[in-house]
Design a protein around this nucleic acid. Structure first.
Lengths: 344, 344
DNA sequence: TTCAAACAGTTAACCGGTTAACAATATAGT
DNA sequence: ACTATATTGTTAACCGGTTAACTGTTTGAA
């Protein structure tokens, strides 16, 4: 209830000027050990906490890093992110683990209308931004000249090279996933994928799928290709469709675990056994893939590491004052559990 | 790259004082429509964005709401939260949905050492706090006098009444869950629970379990009680233990879905059928309960709603300037899926 | 001994807003 | 006609820090 102590209070209490207090706060060597001691004592005695707001106003650093999530008209974080949610939490956790130590906080915001991002960044004077998800191109044009380090996650688009990027080798992931199925003897391998047109991540994984088929002399067959939303329900619909149409597939590569789980549910619901009747491999390695039966074979992407790297990119820029754009591409790893078995 | 326009630039451009600009920014009726127009035009022309930092410094409102998560020594958000993660994302999403409209941002932080919370709140001048998880009591003593609205989520402890609270009827939830099993004809109903000693949530659900047994003339048997961490692995260990010891249980109430899933995995792994050999009901209604086979019967708690309510409590305090502590207790609902069936 | 540099500390302007107090003009009441 | 009261606007202090420029004292080198 009592007013918080300010730097003036400390100065008065220690019998010095505010400048001297500021110097000891910022570890600037301009004060004798004795005075420093006296000031430190006053600080402790008054329970003084410097105001980050004031500091920000005066030196322009907010020590705030923003995380942007695209949101839908309904005001929600979109299904993709929400359903993939383990994702979200782990990602934040990765970021937090590096920012916290350095005194930065993270600000989370879903922003809807196109240019509110810019407003947000400016009004809050964010020191850096991490952008998750797909946005209309115009946003990047706006945001490019803001002179703020920006990290794009999983962005392949051509303009993305204007920013820092963290991604994984999606093509390789698609390739390895498909190859795993091929090595198990499967010849008829379906693909469950989101919009290849709108999402580079999807199209890259699709490319990997095609490459694996080609390298192994398998033909690309359009009736093994299924496109729907990258959600549980999207996968579920694909599963139902495969069953309805009597698909010849003996295995399927789903570009996301959540889709794979949808497919599995569609099959199990009709009493059709997995992996006996259909081997299935996902992508992402979300926690629940390990918590279900059968355990989901998948391509691992280290989402926490993604967060860590993104945060470090920003902090590096901030300390070095540089602004060269780096791009880190992580390797996916095959994780074999029990949803894939050799072709009978 | 160009310097951002400040209020002074706008004032100069419109040929008025900064005070007038400030008045139109804050919708204070002290300016003729014509002047207002002129100022508005200048604002648009210069692409002016008021600095929230400066505003905060001058009027003391940061428009920042903090979300506290306890973290472990290793620096991670603790397993409970991470594994329960759909939880986390949905919760944030609920908060965001109300704060965004009102111009508040949310700041997320895991804080480890005891009193860093206080520092964080003060340094960032947070307008409100939402605290998730269990903390040492001393933290609340520290934080109580900060004159900041605080909402505790799922806190039963006696000191909790000094703050706003959002929780669900845990005792009722435990009761209804157990009653559901009893109504299916089960007599030997096991309980999988976390530390009843340390967590009121656990003890409340345990109370509900006991009440249901008692009301139905069933005896409380200690060898049907299993205590372990509220995690997948905790549940898994319990499942293994039940099998190893040849437990007579035909049904089990797990105080969290994530535990229930662990138990299910332990059973399925050994080829023992669920729900045929063991009916199981969880608690929380995490998304994956619906995405698995068998679908998990559970007690729903609307986590998004929890977030919404918590945010509204804070914003109400902020607008009304009052500080009376409210407590909202939500009702859990039984959601029957396929992991529970009548006793054969 | 003398002058320059190093040291320890202070003063005051500044960051970008808000707002109480004031001034000048217009409107209204009696 | 003469105040009292709105109305519209400005001035300047303030929020709580940072930091360039300055002052006064020591130290050291020539």
């Amino acid at each position: 209830m009592e007013k918080r102590a300010t730097i003036k209070d400390v100065a008065k209490h220690a019998g010095v000027s505010t400048a001297s207090v500021s110097y000891v706060l910022n570890d600037i060597d301009k004060v004798t050990p004795e005075t420093k001691m006296r000031i430190l004592n006053s600080i402790k005695e008054l329970g003084y906490q410097p105001s980050l707001t004031a500091r920000c106003l005066s030196n322009g650093e907010s020590r705030l890093i923003g995380i942007c999530l695209p949101i839908t008209e309904e005001g929600d974080i979109p299904g993709v992110l929400l359903e993939n949610n383990p994702f979200f939490g782990e990602f934040i956790s990765g970021i937090e683990s590096v920012t916290r130590k350095r005194g930065y906080d993270i600000l989370i915001s879903g922003v809807s209308s196109n240019n509110q991002y810019k407003d947000w960044i400016q009004q809050r004077k964010l020191d850096g931004i991490i952008m998750l998800g797909v946005y209309p191109r115009s946003i990047f044009e706006e945001v490019k000249n803001l002179n703020v380090p920006i990290v794009l996650i999983d962005a392949y688009e051509e303009y993305a090279s204007d920013f820092h990027r963290v991604m994984i080798k999606d093509e390789l992931g698609g390739y390895l996933a498909t190859k795993h199925l091929i090595e198990l003897g499967h010849k008829k391998i379906a693909l469950a994928v989101g919009s290849v047109l709108k999402s580079y991540v999807n199209s890259q994984r699709f490319e990997g799928y095609k490459r694996a088929l080609k390298e192994n002399g398998l033909e690309l067959s359009t009736n093994l290709l299924f496109e729907d939303n990258v959600t549980f329900n999207g996968g579920y619909r694909i599963g139902k469709e495969m069953l309805r149409s009597g698909s010849e597939a003996t295995a399927v590569f789903a570009v996301a675990d959540i889709m794979a789980i949808g497919i599995i549910n569609a099959y199990l619901e009709e009493g059709i056994k997995i992996p006996e009747k259909l081997s299935i491999i996902g992508f992402d390695n979300i926690k629940f893939g390990n918590y279900m039966v059968p355990g989901l074979t998948t391509m691992n992407q280290d989402i926490m590491e993604k967060g860590r790297i993104a945060a470090e990119m920003i902090l590096d820029d901030l300390t070095k004052g540089s602004r060269s754009n780096h791009s880190v591409t992580l390797d996916p790893q095959l994780i074999v559990r029990s949803s894939t078995i050799p072709l009978a």
